[in-house]
Design a protein around this nucleic acid. Structure first.
Length: 419
RNA sequence: CGGGCUGUCGUAUACCGGUAGUACGUCUGUUUUGGGAACAGAUAGACUGGGUUCGAUUCCCAGCAGCCCGACCA
Protein backbone atom coordinates (compact mmCIF):
# COMPACT_ATOMS: atom_id res chain seq x y z
CA UNK A 1 0.00 0.00 0.00
CA UNK A 2 1.24 3.46 -0.77
CA UNK A 3 1.30 6.39 1.58
CA UNK A 4 -2.19 7.44 0.72
CA UNK A 5 -5.42 5.68 0.00
CA UNK A 6 -8.95 6.36 -1.06
CA UNK A 7 -11.38 4.80 1.33
CA UNK A 8 -13.72 3.99 -1.54
CA UNK A 9 -11.00 1.64 -2.83
CA UNK A 10 -10.10 0.11 0.52
CA UNK A 11 -11.26 -3.47 0.47
CA UNK A 12 -12.31 -3.60 4.09
CA UNK A 13 -15.37 -1.91 5.50
CA UNK A 14 -16.25 -0.82 8.96
CA UNK A 15 -18.96 -2.48 10.98
CA UNK A 16 -21.37 -0.87 13.31
CA UNK A 17 -21.74 -3.85 15.58
CA UNK A 18 -19.20 -5.97 17.31
CA UNK A 19 -19.25 -9.71 16.81
CA UNK A 20 -20.76 -11.48 19.76
CA UNK A 21 -17.89 -13.90 20.19
CA UNK A 22 -15.43 -11.15 21.02
CA UNK A 23 -15.46 -9.53 24.41
CA UNK A 24 -12.13 -7.78 24.52
CA UNK A 25 -11.95 -4.17 23.47
CA UNK A 26 -8.96 -4.66 21.20
CA UNK A 27 -10.60 -7.42 19.17
CA UNK A 28 -13.92 -5.65 19.01
CA UNK A 29 -12.51 -2.38 17.73
CA UNK A 30 -9.95 -3.94 15.41
CA UNK A 31 -12.57 -6.20 13.84
CA UNK A 32 -15.16 -3.45 13.56
CA UNK A 33 -12.58 -1.21 11.93
CA UNK A 34 -11.52 -3.93 9.50
CA UNK A 35 -7.96 -4.13 10.81
CA UNK A 36 -7.99 -7.85 11.49
CA UNK A 37 -10.04 -10.92 10.69
CA UNK A 38 -10.53 -13.79 13.08
CA UNK A 39 -9.77 -17.22 11.67
CA UNK A 40 -10.19 -19.28 14.80
CA UNK A 41 -9.67 -18.94 18.52
CA UNK A 42 -6.41 -17.10 19.05
CA UNK A 43 -5.61 -16.83 15.34
CA UNK A 44 -6.10 -13.65 13.36
CA UNK A 45 -5.31 -12.44 9.87
CA UNK A 46 -4.14 -8.88 9.36
CA UNK A 47 -5.97 -6.82 6.75
CA UNK A 48 -4.55 -3.71 5.03
CA UNK A 49 -5.10 -1.25 7.86
CA UNK A 50 -4.01 -3.70 10.54
CA UNK A 51 -0.96 -4.76 8.60
CA UNK A 52 0.10 -1.15 8.20
CA UNK A 53 0.05 -0.74 11.97
CA UNK A 54 1.85 -4.01 12.51
CA UNK A 55 4.55 -3.08 10.01
CA UNK A 56 5.09 0.27 11.65
CA UNK A 57 5.51 -1.37 15.02
CA UNK A 58 7.81 -3.88 13.39
CA UNK A 59 9.96 -1.13 11.91
CA UNK A 60 10.29 0.67 15.21
CA UNK A 61 11.30 -2.60 16.86
CA UNK A 62 13.77 -3.30 14.06
CA UNK A 63 15.34 0.12 14.32
CA UNK A 64 15.79 -0.20 18.04
CA UNK A 65 17.24 -3.70 17.82
CA UNK A 66 19.67 -2.58 15.15
CA UNK A 67 20.69 0.38 17.30
CA UNK A 68 21.35 -2.03 20.15
CA UNK A 69 23.74 -3.97 17.94
CA UNK A 70 21.38 -6.75 16.96
CA UNK A 71 21.67 -8.42 13.57
CA UNK A 72 18.47 -9.56 11.95
CA UNK A 73 18.03 -13.11 10.78
CA UNK A 74 14.99 -15.22 9.93
CA UNK A 75 14.90 -18.71 11.33
CA UNK A 76 12.68 -21.58 10.28
CA UNK A 77 9.31 -22.16 11.85
CA UNK A 78 9.76 -25.89 11.31
CA UNK A 79 12.14 -27.19 13.92
CA UNK A 80 13.83 -30.59 14.19
CA UNK A 81 12.57 -32.88 16.90
CA UNK A 82 16.12 -33.87 17.92
CA UNK A 83 16.91 -30.32 18.97
CA UNK A 84 13.94 -30.26 21.26
CA UNK A 85 14.80 -33.62 22.69
CA UNK A 86 18.26 -32.32 23.48
CA UNK A 87 16.89 -29.61 25.72
CA UNK A 88 14.24 -31.90 27.16
CA UNK A 89 11.47 -29.72 25.86
CA UNK A 90 9.97 -32.05 23.22
CA UNK A 91 7.90 -33.56 26.01
CA UNK A 92 8.50 -30.83 28.52
CA UNK A 93 6.87 -27.84 26.90
CA UNK A 94 3.14 -28.27 26.72
CA UNK A 95 2.52 -25.35 24.37
CA UNK A 96 4.63 -27.05 21.69
CA UNK A 97 2.88 -27.83 18.43
CA UNK A 98 4.12 -31.13 17.04
CA UNK A 99 3.33 -31.89 13.44
CA UNK A 100 4.13 -34.94 11.40
CA UNK A 101 4.29 -35.50 7.67
CA UNK A 102 3.11 -38.45 5.61
CA UNK A 103 6.44 -40.20 6.23
CA UNK A 104 5.83 -40.07 9.95
CA UNK A 105 8.61 -37.55 10.52
CA UNK A 106 7.87 -35.25 13.41
CA UNK A 107 8.83 -31.61 13.68
CA UNK A 108 7.95 -28.79 16.03
CA UNK A 109 6.36 -25.52 15.01
CA UNK A 110 8.52 -22.94 16.69
CA UNK A 111 7.13 -21.41 19.87
CA UNK A 112 10.55 -19.87 20.54
CA UNK A 113 13.93 -20.35 18.91
CA UNK A 114 16.62 -21.24 21.43
CA UNK A 115 16.72 -24.75 19.96
CA UNK A 116 17.44 -23.30 16.52
CA UNK A 117 19.62 -20.30 17.15
CA UNK A 118 22.12 -22.12 19.36
CA UNK A 119 22.96 -24.86 16.83
CA UNK A 120 23.32 -22.18 14.16
CA UNK A 121 25.79 -20.30 16.33
CA UNK A 122 27.84 -23.45 16.77
CA UNK A 123 28.90 -23.14 13.15
CA UNK A 124 30.32 -19.69 13.53
CA UNK A 125 31.29 -19.19 17.13
CA UNK A 126 34.56 -20.62 18.31
CA UNK A 127 36.73 -17.91 19.78
CA UNK A 128 36.32 -15.18 22.38
CA UNK A 129 36.96 -12.89 19.42
CA UNK A 130 33.56 -13.89 18.04
CA UNK A 131 31.79 -12.54 21.12
CA UNK A 132 29.56 -10.83 21.97
CA UNK A 133 26.83 -11.29 19.39
CA UNK A 134 23.16 -10.45 19.33
CA UNK A 135 20.79 -11.97 16.79
CA UNK A 136 17.13 -11.30 16.41
CA UNK A 137 14.23 -12.13 14.18
CA UNK A 138 10.65 -11.06 13.67
CA UNK A 139 8.57 -14.11 12.99
CA UNK A 140 5.33 -15.91 13.56
CA UNK A 141 5.35 -18.06 16.66
CA UNK A 142 3.09 -21.00 17.39
CA UNK A 143 1.97 -21.91 20.86
CA UNK A 144 -0.79 -24.28 21.78
CA UNK A 145 -2.43 -22.08 24.34
CA UNK A 146 -5.10 -24.07 26.09
CA UNK A 147 -7.17 -21.01 26.29
CA UNK A 148 -6.47 -18.16 23.89
CA UNK A 149 -8.17 -15.00 24.97
CA UNK A 150 -8.35 -11.25 24.95
CA UNK A 151 -8.32 -10.88 21.18
CA UNK A 152 -4.80 -10.43 19.84
CA UNK A 153 -3.32 -10.22 23.32
CA UNK A 154 -2.96 -13.99 23.67
CA UNK A 155 -3.02 -16.07 20.53
CA UNK A 156 -1.90 -19.42 19.22
CA UNK A 157 -0.10 -17.84 16.31
CA UNK A 158 1.46 -14.44 16.73
CA UNK A 159 4.21 -12.24 15.40
CA UNK A 160 7.09 -11.88 17.79
CA UNK A 161 10.47 -10.29 17.92
CA UNK A 162 12.91 -12.54 19.69
CA UNK A 163 16.51 -11.59 20.24
CA UNK A 164 19.25 -13.79 21.64
CA UNK A 165 22.53 -12.44 22.93
CA UNK A 166 25.75 -14.40 23.37
CA UNK A 167 28.52 -13.47 25.76
CA UNK A 168 31.88 -14.63 27.00
CA UNK A 169 31.05 -13.84 30.60
CA UNK A 170 28.19 -13.11 32.95
CA UNK A 171 29.60 -9.59 33.40
CA UNK A 172 29.46 -8.92 29.70
CA UNK A 173 25.91 -10.26 29.57
CA UNK A 174 24.85 -8.00 32.43
CA UNK A 175 26.24 -4.96 30.68
CA UNK A 176 24.25 -5.80 27.57
CA UNK A 177 21.17 -6.61 29.62
CA UNK A 178 21.20 -3.20 31.23
CA UNK A 179 21.56 -1.60 27.85
CA UNK A 180 18.51 -3.55 26.68
CA UNK A 181 16.46 -2.16 29.54
CA UNK A 182 17.00 1.27 28.05
CA UNK A 183 16.36 0.09 24.51
CA UNK A 184 13.02 -1.39 25.52
CA UNK A 185 12.05 1.78 27.35
CA UNK A 186 12.73 3.86 24.24
CA UNK A 187 10.86 1.38 22.10
CA UNK A 188 7.70 1.47 24.20
CA UNK A 189 7.86 5.24 24.29
CA UNK A 190 8.04 5.31 20.51
CA UNK A 191 4.95 3.19 20.08
CA UNK A 192 3.04 5.47 22.42
CA UNK A 193 2.68 3.57 25.68
CA UNK A 194 5.87 4.64 27.45
CA UNK A 195 3.96 6.60 30.07
CA UNK A 196 2.05 3.52 31.25
CA UNK A 197 4.72 0.86 30.79
CA UNK A 198 6.82 -0.22 33.74
CA UNK A 199 9.97 -2.19 34.15
CA UNK A 200 8.68 -4.98 36.33
CA UNK A 201 10.57 -7.42 38.47
CA UNK A 202 9.44 -10.95 37.86
CA UNK A 203 10.86 -14.38 37.96
CA UNK A 204 9.86 -17.95 38.34
CA UNK A 205 11.51 -19.66 41.26
CA UNK A 206 14.37 -17.79 42.86
CA UNK A 207 14.41 -14.07 42.59
CA UNK A 208 16.85 -12.84 40.05
CA UNK A 209 18.10 -9.39 39.33
CA UNK A 210 18.07 -10.31 35.68
CA UNK A 211 14.54 -11.23 34.76
CA UNK A 212 12.33 -8.34 33.88
CA UNK A 213 9.01 -7.89 32.26
CA UNK A 214 7.75 -4.72 30.72
CA UNK A 215 4.19 -4.35 31.88
CA UNK A 216 1.68 -1.89 30.44
CA UNK A 217 -1.15 -0.75 32.66
CA UNK A 218 -4.51 -1.73 31.20
CA UNK A 219 -7.67 -3.19 32.62
CA UNK A 220 -7.43 -5.92 29.98
CA UNK A 221 -4.21 -7.12 31.55
CA UNK A 222 -3.70 -10.66 32.75
CA UNK A 223 -1.16 -9.80 35.41
CA UNK A 224 -1.33 -7.91 38.63
CA UNK A 225 1.61 -5.69 39.40
CA UNK A 226 2.55 -3.30 42.18
CA UNK A 227 3.75 0.00 40.84
CA UNK A 228 6.01 2.48 42.59
CA UNK A 229 5.09 5.61 40.67
CA UNK A 230 8.02 7.55 42.09
CA UNK A 231 10.73 5.26 40.76
CA UNK A 232 8.72 4.07 37.77
CA UNK A 233 9.41 0.48 38.76
CA UNK A 234 6.97 -2.32 39.45
CA UNK A 235 6.88 -5.78 40.97
CA UNK A 236 4.83 -8.64 39.62
CA UNK A 237 2.44 -10.07 42.16
CA UNK A 238 3.96 -13.50 41.49
CA UNK A 239 7.21 -12.55 43.20
CA UNK A 240 5.94 -9.97 45.64
CA UNK A 241 7.23 -10.49 49.17
CA UNK A 242 8.80 -8.49 51.99
CA UNK A 243 12.15 -9.98 51.14
CA UNK A 244 11.93 -8.83 47.55
CA UNK A 245 10.83 -5.38 48.63
CA UNK A 246 13.82 -4.96 50.89
CA UNK A 247 16.19 -6.24 48.21
CA UNK A 248 14.82 -3.60 45.87
CA UNK A 249 14.75 -0.86 48.48
CA UNK A 250 11.06 -0.37 47.95
CA UNK A 251 8.44 0.54 50.51
CA UNK A 252 5.10 -1.21 50.57
CA UNK A 253 3.20 2.00 51.30
CA UNK A 254 4.29 3.52 47.99
CA UNK A 255 2.95 0.72 45.88
CA UNK A 256 -0.27 0.79 43.88
CA UNK A 257 -1.93 -2.37 42.60
CA UNK A 258 -2.66 -2.38 38.87
CA UNK A 259 -3.78 -4.78 36.16
CA UNK A 260 -1.19 -4.96 33.42
CA UNK A 261 -0.22 -6.83 30.29
CA UNK A 262 3.29 -8.07 29.64
CA UNK A 263 4.43 -6.42 26.41
CA UNK A 264 8.03 -7.52 26.57
CA UNK A 265 10.56 -9.38 28.59
CA UNK A 266 14.28 -9.60 29.01
CA UNK A 267 15.79 -12.69 30.40
CA UNK A 268 18.96 -14.20 31.75
CA UNK A 269 19.43 -17.63 30.18
CA UNK A 270 22.91 -18.23 31.56
CA UNK A 271 24.06 -21.49 29.95
CA UNK A 272 20.70 -23.21 30.00
CA UNK A 273 20.62 -23.60 26.22
CA UNK A 274 24.28 -23.33 25.33
CA UNK A 275 25.12 -26.33 27.54
CA UNK A 276 22.88 -29.00 25.91
CA UNK A 277 24.28 -28.07 22.49
CA UNK A 278 27.79 -27.55 23.82
CA UNK A 279 27.96 -24.04 22.47
CA UNK A 280 31.33 -22.87 23.77
CA UNK A 281 34.23 -20.64 22.90
CA UNK A 282 37.96 -20.65 23.53
CA UNK A 283 39.39 -17.79 25.57
CA UNK A 284 42.71 -16.01 25.08
CA UNK A 285 44.47 -18.68 27.13
CA UNK A 286 43.14 -21.52 25.03
CA UNK A 287 40.57 -22.61 27.61
CA UNK A 288 37.07 -23.66 26.65
CA UNK A 289 34.01 -22.01 28.27
CA UNK A 290 30.26 -22.29 27.73
CA UNK A 291 28.65 -19.27 26.12
CA UNK A 292 26.42 -17.11 28.34
CA UNK A 293 23.08 -16.16 26.82
CA UNK A 294 20.23 -13.76 27.23
CA UNK A 295 16.93 -13.48 25.42
CA UNK A 296 14.63 -10.57 24.76
CA UNK A 297 11.11 -10.89 23.47
CA UNK A 298 8.34 -8.61 22.32
CA UNK A 299 5.02 -9.78 20.96
CA UNK A 300 4.17 -7.38 18.16
CA UNK A 301 0.51 -8.27 17.82
CA UNK A 302 0.12 -8.08 21.55
CA UNK A 303 1.79 -4.69 21.50
CA UNK A 304 -0.67 -3.51 18.88
CA UNK A 305 -3.60 -4.81 20.90
CA UNK A 306 -2.24 -3.20 24.02
CA UNK A 307 -2.08 0.18 22.32
CA UNK A 308 -5.72 -0.21 21.35
CA UNK A 309 -6.72 -1.25 24.86
CA UNK A 310 -4.79 1.53 26.51
CA UNK A 311 -5.59 4.45 24.22
CA UNK A 312 -9.06 3.80 22.81
CA UNK A 313 -12.09 5.74 24.03
CA UNK A 314 -15.77 4.94 23.73
CA UNK A 315 -15.84 6.06 20.11
CA UNK A 316 -13.00 3.94 18.87
CA UNK A 317 -9.28 3.62 18.47
CA UNK A 318 -6.83 6.49 18.92
CA UNK A 319 -3.53 5.54 17.30
CA UNK A 320 -0.34 7.30 18.27
CA UNK A 321 1.17 9.10 15.28
CA UNK A 322 4.12 6.74 15.17
CA UNK A 323 2.08 3.63 14.39
CA UNK A 324 -1.16 4.94 12.91
CA UNK A 325 -1.97 3.41 9.52
CA UNK A 326 -2.37 6.93 8.21
CA UNK A 327 -1.53 10.19 9.85
CA UNK A 328 -4.55 12.01 8.52
CA UNK A 329 -8.12 11.05 7.72
CA UNK A 330 -9.49 13.43 5.10
CA UNK A 331 -13.28 13.59 4.85
CA UNK A 332 -15.40 15.15 2.16
CA UNK A 333 -18.95 15.88 3.25
CA UNK A 334 -21.91 16.13 0.93
CA UNK A 335 -22.17 15.73 -2.80
CA UNK A 336 -21.75 19.35 -3.77
CA UNK A 337 -19.55 19.52 -6.86
CA UNK A 338 -17.48 22.39 -5.53
CA UNK A 339 -16.80 20.54 -2.30
CA UNK A 340 -15.81 17.35 -4.12
CA UNK A 341 -13.48 19.30 -6.37
CA UNK A 342 -11.89 21.02 -3.42
CA UNK A 343 -11.49 17.74 -1.50
CA UNK A 344 -9.79 16.14 -4.50
CA UNK A 345 -7.43 19.09 -4.70
CA UNK A 346 -6.59 18.85 -1.01
CA UNK A 347 -6.05 15.09 -1.29
CA UNK A 348 -3.70 15.46 -4.22
CA UNK A 349 -1.74 18.19 -2.49
CA UNK A 350 -1.36 16.11 0.65
CA UNK A 351 -0.32 13.11 -1.40
CA UNK A 352 2.25 15.21 -3.20
CA UNK A 353 3.60 16.46 0.11
CA UNK A 354 4.19 12.86 1.11
CA UNK A 355 1.65 12.86 3.91
CA UNK A 356 0.03 9.57 4.78
CA UNK A 357 -3.62 10.24 4.22
CA UNK A 358 -6.75 8.15 4.09
CA UNK A 359 -9.30 9.99 1.96
CA UNK A 360 -12.90 9.22 2.75
CA UNK A 361 -14.21 9.92 -0.72
CA UNK A 362 -17.12 7.51 -0.41
CA UNK A 363 -20.27 8.88 -1.99
CA UNK A 364 -23.68 8.80 -0.43
CA UNK A 365 -22.64 8.57 3.18
CA UNK A 366 -24.00 10.94 5.76
CA UNK A 367 -21.66 13.16 7.70
CA UNK A 368 -22.42 11.19 10.81
CA UNK A 369 -21.29 7.94 9.26
CA UNK A 370 -18.03 9.44 8.09
CA UNK A 371 -17.34 11.00 11.47
CA UNK A 372 -18.11 7.77 13.27
CA UNK A 373 -15.83 5.82 10.97
CA UNK A 374 -13.05 8.34 11.46
CA UNK A 375 -13.40 8.01 15.23
CA UNK A 376 -13.46 4.22 15.01
CA UNK A 377 -10.44 3.94 12.73
CA UNK A 378 -8.51 6.37 14.89
CA UNK A 379 -6.14 8.34 12.69
CA UNK A 380 -4.41 10.99 14.80
CA UNK A 381 -5.74 13.86 12.67
CA UNK A 382 -9.00 14.42 10.87
CA UNK A 383 -9.49 17.01 8.15
CA UNK A 384 -12.91 17.92 6.81
CA UNK A 385 -13.73 19.57 3.51
CA UNK A 386 -17.38 20.59 3.33
CA UNK A 387 -19.65 23.42 2.33
CA UNK A 388 -19.17 24.77 5.82
CA UNK A 389 -15.39 24.65 5.76
CA UNK A 390 -15.33 26.26 2.32
CA UNK A 391 -17.48 29.07 3.52
CA UNK A 392 -14.74 29.73 6.04
CA UNK A 393 -12.10 29.46 3.33
CA UNK A 394 -10.21 26.56 4.76
CA UNK A 395 -10.15 23.01 5.99
CA UNK A 396 -11.34 21.89 9.38
CA UNK A 397 -8.56 20.14 11.24
CA UNK A 398 -9.14 18.17 14.42
CA UNK A 399 -7.05 15.82 16.48
CA UNK A 400 -8.59 12.46 17.26
CA UNK A 401 -8.09 12.98 20.96
CA UNK A 402 -9.52 16.50 21.01
CA UNK A 403 -13.14 17.58 20.76
CA UNK A 404 -12.84 20.76 18.80
CA UNK A 405 -11.16 21.46 15.53
CA UNK A 406 -10.15 24.67 13.82
CA UNK A 407 -10.08 26.02 10.32
CA UNK A 408 -6.68 25.99 8.67
CA UNK A 409 -5.44 26.71 5.18
CA UNK A 410 -4.08 23.96 2.98
CA UNK A 411 -0.59 25.33 3.47
CA UNK A 412 -0.96 25.26 7.23
CA UNK A 413 -2.31 21.74 7.09
CA UNK A 414 0.62 20.48 5.07
CA UNK A 415 3.10 22.28 7.23
CA UNK A 416 1.63 20.71 10.33
CA UNK A 417 1.65 17.18 9.00
CA UNK A 418 4.67 16.96 6.76
CA UNK A 419 6.95 14.22 8.10
C1' C B 1 -6.62 -29.47 31.28
C1' G B 2 -11.15 -28.92 35.17
C1' G B 3 -15.86 -26.19 35.37
C1' G B 4 -19.85 -23.30 32.98
C1' C B 5 -22.45 -21.34 28.74
C1' U B 6 -23.58 -21.06 23.45
C1' G B 7 -24.05 -22.66 18.09
C1' U B 8 -30.32 -19.68 13.29
C1' C B 9 -28.65 -15.17 6.55
C1' G B 10 -22.21 -11.50 6.26
C1' U B 11 -23.49 -9.18 11.48
C1' A B 12 -27.03 -8.90 15.60
C1' U B 13 -31.32 -11.27 17.06
C1' A B 14 -36.86 -13.60 17.27
C1' C B 15 -40.23 -17.56 17.12
C1' C B 16 -41.45 -22.61 16.75
C1' G B 17 -42.17 -30.51 17.21
C1' G B 18 -45.65 -28.80 11.24
C1' U B 19 -44.33 -22.66 5.32
C1' A B 20 -37.88 -19.72 9.70
C1' G B 21 -39.30 -13.70 10.87
C1' U B 22 -37.02 -8.85 11.95
C1' A B 23 -33.07 -5.19 12.03
C1' C B 24 -28.26 -3.83 10.29
C1' G B 25 -25.12 -4.87 6.14
C1' U B 26 -24.71 -5.80 0.92
C1' C B 27 -26.77 -4.89 -4.30
C1' U B 28 -30.34 -1.58 -7.74
C1' G B 29 -32.85 2.99 -8.14
C1' U B 30 -34.70 7.85 -6.37
C1' U B 31 -34.35 11.60 -2.75
C1' U B 32 -31.05 13.19 1.17
C1' U B 33 -26.06 15.03 3.57
C1' G B 34 -22.15 18.41 10.05
C1' G B 35 -22.60 12.98 14.31
C1' G B 36 -24.35 6.08 12.06
C1' A B 37 -30.79 9.35 6.77
C1' A B 38 -35.82 8.05 3.85
C1' C B 39 -38.53 5.17 0.41
C1' A B 40 -39.04 1.05 -3.08
C1' G B 41 -37.13 -3.51 -4.74
C1' A B 42 -33.42 -7.48 -4.34
C1' U B 43 -29.91 -10.79 -1.67
C1' A B 44 -28.90 -14.51 1.86
C1' G B 45 -29.52 -18.60 7.18
C1' A B 46 -30.84 -23.51 11.32
C1' C B 47 -22.48 -26.34 12.84
C1' U B 48 -21.88 -31.86 11.66
C1' G B 49 -23.45 -36.92 12.42
C1' G B 50 -26.73 -40.20 14.73
C1' G B 51 -31.35 -41.15 17.60
C1' U B 52 -36.73 -40.31 19.03
C1' U B 53 -40.98 -38.92 15.82
C1' C B 54 -45.80 -39.31 10.67
C1' G B 55 -42.66 -34.97 10.76
C1' A B 56 -36.65 -32.19 14.15
C1' U B 57 -33.82 -25.93 13.21
C1' U B 58 -36.61 -27.14 17.83
C1' C B 59 -36.21 -32.93 22.06
C1' C B 60 -31.97 -36.64 23.21
C1' C B 61 -26.77 -38.38 22.35
C1' A B 62 -22.00 -37.74 20.23
C1' G B 63 -18.59 -34.90 17.64
C1' C B 64 -16.86 -30.17 16.11
C1' A B 65 -16.55 -24.98 16.95
C1' G B 66 -16.79 -20.46 19.88
C1' C B 67 -17.01 -17.66 24.47
C1' C B 68 -16.44 -17.12 29.92
C1' C B 69 -14.14 -18.62 34.98
C1' G B 70 -9.97 -21.32 36.86
C1' A B 71 -5.20 -23.77 36.17
C1' C B 72 -1.09 -23.03 32.82
C1' C B 73 1.86 -19.23 30.28
C1' A B 74 9.91 -20.02 27.69
Amino acid sequence: MTNSMRQSKLFTKTRKEAPSDEVSKNAELLIRGGFIHKEMAGVYSYLPLGLKVLRKIENIVREEMNKAGGQEILMSAFQPKENWEKTGRWDGLDVLYKVSDSQGREVALGPTHEEIVVPILKNYLTSYKDLPKALYQIQDKFRMELRPKSGILRGREFLMKDMYSFHASQEDFEKFYEQMEGVYKTLFERVGIGHITYLTFASGGTFSKYSHEFQTITSAGEDTIYVDEGSGIAINKEVMSDEVLSQLNMVKENLVERKAIEVGNIFDLKTKYSAPFDLSYTDDKGEKHPVVMGCYGIGLGRLMGTVVEALADDKGIAWPETIAPFKLHLLSLGEDAEVLKEAEKVYESLEEAGIEVLFDDRAGLSAGEKFSDADLLGMPYRAVVSARSMKEHGIELKKRIEDKGKIVTLEELIKKLVP
